[in-house]
Design a protein around this nucleic acid. Structure first.
Lengths: 357, 357
DNA sequence: TTGAAAGCGATACCAG
DNA sequence: CTGGTATCGCTTTCAA
């Protein structure tokens, strides 16, 4: 059955196509009797309207494009977990645009401005250039950014510098003075800057406390667990090794934990580790970290985009950061400060919720 | 600039719309000179064709719908990791349909058969009813199933019964006789049956070896890490507790590992644990498991759908299963078999690749 | 309340 | 090689 169109339904019901369309869209100006007849015809024929035809006619696709770099990354997944249900509730489909290479970013944004592709865009960690931004504007396609700040576009962000400072201060508050850092390479083709900002805040905290800042304690490498493990191993191999480490992401922190285990360095006994993000695996690993409410950031971003889609202006939001104390940090043994000593078990947390599926 | 259409470009270039369309689609029958002129006009106007108009005209949306239950689950993510790049390479967009409640399944499949939504469907773990299957057929929408078998539709699957048998035999080969099982509830609204099938195979292996099969060693609960932990704890609290456990998924196995740690039971010293799936976290946790090549299953599913989309018939494929020995299983201490003893470190693996991002 | 017809923005066939 | 036009399937005036 090739062309089961609205015209066929109209014929079956003995009415005009306009009437069928009205029934389809719940228009009140259709007599109850006619409506029943049309509905019957629709059921008999098992008719389903064409989404594209409707989209071409109305100018709305009811689809939202979600742009994400390496969407299988834990932090991105958490954000998607917040985005998906909101979009679905708003009646929008989620079209996923994965970006695995920096040069794909431009192509992706370009294809997204093609009219009729999506009604709106949610961009995670990636920002359009000002030229692309203008394109979106002239195409009438709203775009909301997540995990970044922007002066012209609504964006959901956190204060990374402050987050770095929180991590530094937290460790210093535990009596640590020799503190290492494990983060991303700061020159990257994607333009990611959060790791660098977290490092800045971290260094500021150490500086303010008069703690030493050795260049060899600052390790930057690829984002990932294994790279984090390598950086951690390098740190632990140092003659004058740090007693604590701040990793600018949880996956890197988990790598550091592995390195410590491999080197036989007890955590948090001889090494305290704090991460950043609070992904699901952090709860599982018992990792102390700075939570940035990933899922919520996605949900809020989706909500703002939905607002924009419904005509109201979307707003930028800066989400709060908070230290989540778990089991990988503790007071430095030889110091006599005022904070309590952390637990001593390393590894698997036993009751930290988080429910990995 | 509201209506920047192909007509506007045609006017700008001083040609007909048909010619512009030919240029857009790389038709060879356009003189080099004309082509240049049209291209110039396109550049000047910064024109982008409308995807919906094109879709309505050609009957192809260049989008594929991916249906997945709880897409943030590790195993589903791994499959998506294989799917996404293939689809992108084939020029298709990925429209994600998350299913979180069983009753959404039908709505999802129904909306997917709406013509003009997507050109094809990839369904993970969820199967359409025969009625829905007919709908897809009459709509001309190819559909490929992943993680399930089907007699009328192409499907990418594994032999779950055999997998369960492999797990059971593996543990028996290590000298274990008292072996527990942790899996999903077998009556579930989604109709998932793999956990039940794995249990069947597992029990068959134990039966064949003459190993005891105590009802209290079989635990079924919700799919998830915390539920796995609870089941594991229950198993360990048993007077006559098992010396090994087969969990029908890695997340549940990881829960069992947590329970063992909480109970102070050394793994694999006093308890061997084997999982199923081989998700990324399994490598990280050093978990021995049965790999089912999740990412590859997604890639193959996508490839088959792409074939169907290009006219060739898609084929069903059954993927191989293989035991991946890591550090959570070892020979039963008191037994004198022929296999070597497993490593003794529990928890974090130190060099197992897997590169969690 | 309803039918007829004009778009929506491309593609593709048909002449020339 | 190129222009004109019918067509895709629906929504939305405009009259009646």
């Amino acid at each position: 059955m090739r062309g089961l169109t609205i015209a066929r339904v109209a014929a079956e019901a003995g009415v005009g196509v306009g009437t069928v369309s009205r029934v389809l869209n719940g228009s009140p100006s259709v007599s109850e009797d006619t409506r029943r007849r049309v509905l019957a015809a629709i059921a008999t024929l098992d008719y389903q309207p064409s989404a594209v035809a409707r989209a071409l006619s109305t100018g709305r696709t009811h689809a939202v494009g979600v742009v994400a770099p390496f969407f299988t990354q834990p932090s991105v997944i958490e954000r998607l977990r917040g985005i998906s249900p909101r979009l679905a509730a708003g009646g929008y489909q989620l079209v996923l645009f994965d970006v695995e290479r920096a040069d794909q970013t431009r192509d992706t944004f370009r294809s997204l401005t093609m009219r009729g592709r999506v009604d709106g865009v949610l961009s995670i960690s990636l920002a359009p250039t000002s030229r692309e931004t203008k394109r979106f504007e002239s195409a009438g396609t709203p775009i909301v950014l997540v995990d970044q700040e922007h002066d012209a576009l609504p964006a959901i962000s956190v204060d990374d510098v402050k987050g770095g400072r929180m991590a530094g201060s937290y460790l210093i508050g535990l009596g640590h003075r020799r503190i290492g850092f494990v983060g991303d390479e700061e020159e990257n083709p994607f333009g990611f800057a959060s790791s660098a900002r977290r490092r800045e805040g971290f260094e500021a905290a150490l500086h303010a406390a008069g703690a030493p800042l050795r260049p060899e304690w600052i390790r930057r490498g690829p984002h990932g667990r294994t790279a984090g493990r390598d950086s951690g191993a390098a740190l632990l191999a140092l003659e004058d090794r740090p007693t604590a480490v701040f990793a600018s992401s949880d996956v890197q922190a988990i790598g550091v934990l592995e390195a410590a285990r491999a080197a036989g360095v007890p955590v948090p006994g001889e090494l305290s580790v704090i991460g950043f993000d609070d992904v699901e695996a952090a709860a599982y690993a018992g990792l102390t970290t700075i939570t940035q409410s990933l899922e919520e950031s996605g949900a809020i971003g989706a909500d703002q985009l939905l607002r924009a889609l419904s005509g109201e202006p979307a707003e930028s939001r800066r989400l709060p950061l908070r230290v989540v104390e778990r089991h990988t940090t503790s007071r430095l043994a030889s110091s006599g400060g005022k904070r309590g000593t952390g637990p001593t078990n390393n590894g698997l947390a036993t009751n930290d919720g988080g429910g990995m599926q």
